Simulated scan of single mutants.
Amino acid sequence: MRSKSFGSAKLACLTLVALGACVIPIPTFSPSYAQTVAGRAIGEDASKFVADQQVASSKPAAEYTTLQLPSPNGIDVTATYQKGSKKIVQIEATRQLSLPGASGQFGKFEFGKTSLSEIRSLFGSKGLLFTGIAPVTATPDGGVTIVSSYEVQGTSIIASFASKISASSLRELKQRFGEDMYAHLDGVALLESTVVADIAYLIGTRGNELVYDVGYAPIVWKNPISTAVKPRQISVARISPSQLPVHRIYNGPINAPYFTDASARNFQTRISEGMAGGPTFAGEYAVIQVGCGTGCSIAYTASVRTGEVSRIPIDDDAAQYLDLKYQIDSRLLVAQSAKGAASKCHMQFLTMDEGEWISLLEHDVGPTETCYNSIAQNLRN
């Protein structure tokens, strides 16, 4: 199990308590100023325009200042610079809601039009995560934002693309696909903002441990992944449960289950019994795993607060050798099961956000027999 960490110049493997992963430092990159957003570049001297700009905010106030810059048509632009050196360390372009279709500042990307599935397809993976910040957040208007980040090849820069699913799109997906809606999120999440930032700045604000998706490789700015770039050979990505905390744990009355998934009705008694024990996941959900034959099982979550029952979106409907890892104070659930057709043991990292499932990362752990081990064992290997 490996993740990446900045710091020491040589490789080291440290035991991590939460999921038993290995932390491996990587070397820093040489600076490069070729990547620009709205005509501004990381590392550019901000002195020439600081006096003429309106200060939008400071973060943190003692060391960095963020300015609102003149915006090209259809986007808002901010630049964060280090007060001491006056060097720009982050640039963010965000679409103006009334003007969809403005340049997404990368290749042919367009704000409000380019989907998350297009971004991930172009880059070949879901990107990387900083363990100090959640990749999925709820928005004030009831939507959800998903951030995908990638190193820019040969530089000290990370590019991030934030895609938003509106509240209305979430409702429509729920109505059309029911419990299978999670599989369609990537297609309706639309590009909301593009950010480029210096790695050293991000370490200070997001933490120095990175988690890489399966098949990850750095991106070439304004181009798809180069065929000459070899994907990182990693075992599986690490996400800490503490990265996706819940804000409260429900301790009220347990409501009777109601079923939006037709298959769950076949297990009404088993699900009711599982709910009677109270929540065990994400603050208000009971997790129920039901056998369906030799080595086969199906898993559900049931909200003891609302009674809503939903199937956990494992790749195979009836999973072989299914193992689940979760806890009551986190929205992270790790599922491991054998994929029969592929003869492989597969691991998924999922999060429950506002009652909806979102897939974060996936990984093939090994051959089918690897699933005889628990998740904890495979995360230590």
Rank of each mutant, 00 (worst) to 15 (best):
324 L>D: 03
228 A>W: 01
219 I>G: 01
260 T>H: 15
293 G>T: 14
222 K>C: 03
215 G>F: 03
250 Y>D: 10
221 W>H: 05
229 V>K: 01
288 I>S: 03
247 H>N: 11
267 F>P: 14
226 S>G: 12
295 G>W: 06
280 T>K: 01
263 S>Q: 14
310 S>K: 14
336 Q>C: 02
271 I>Q: 09
264 A>C: 11
288 I>W: 03
328 I>R: 11
242 S>Q: 04
306 T>M: 10
244 L>F: 14
312 I>W: 08
229 V>H: 02
258 Y>D: 04
310 S>L: 04
248 R>Y: 07
259 F>I: 14
279 P>H: 00
275 M>C: 10
302 A>G: 09
305 R>S: 08
298 I>G: 04
319 A>W: 11
335 A>W: 03
280 T>Y: 00
285 Y>H: 10
333 L>V: 15
300 Y>T: 11
240 S>R: 02
230 K>C: 00
218 P>H: 00
279 P>E: 05
297 S>K: 13
297 S>D: 10
272 S>Y: 03
261 D>T: 13
315 D>T: 13
307 G>C: 10
224 P>A: 00
306 T>S: 15
261 D>F: 07
245 P>A: 00
311 R>T: 11
290 V>I: 15
312 I>F: 04
320 Q>D: 13
250 Y>P: 10
253 P>V: 08
270 R>T: 13
319 A>F: 10
259 F>D: 11
261 D>I: 07
280 T>D: 07
237 A>M: 06
215 G>T: 10
275 M>W: 04
302 A>D: 05
280 T>F: 00
276 A>W: 00
232 R>W: 13
236 V>Q: 04
321 Y>H: 05
275 M>R: 09
272 S>T: 15
272 S>K: 15
325 K>W: 13
218 P>A: 01
245 P>F: 06
245 P>Q: 09
295 G>E: 06
272 S>E: 06
304 V>M: 09
325 K>E: 12
311 R>F: 05
291 G>H: 14
320 Q>L: 14
288 I>A: 08
245 P>G: 05
251 N>E: 14
329 D>F: 06
324 L>S: 05
296 C>R: 15
217 A>H: 03
306 T>V: 02
306 T>C: 05
336 Q>A: 06
305 R>T: 02
320 Q>H: 11
322 L>D: 09
272 S>G: 08
239 I>Q: 12
232 R>P: 00
238 R>N: 14
335 A>H: 01
333 L>A: 05
236 V>F: 14
307 G>K: 07
243 Q>C: 03
238 R>M: 09
305 R>E: 13
322 L>M: 12
229 V>C: 01
298 I>C: 14
230 K>N: 08
305 R>I: 04
218 P>V: 02
279 P>D: 03
266 N>K: 15
303 S>R: 01
254 I>R: 06
292 C>L: 15
240 S>F: 06
237 A>F: 14
317 D>V: 05
219 I>N: 00
221 W>A: 01
265 R>Y: 04
277 G>A: 06
305 R>L: 08
227 T>I: 02
236 V>H: 11
330 S>V: 07
265 R>H: 11
311 R>I: 10
288 I>R: 03
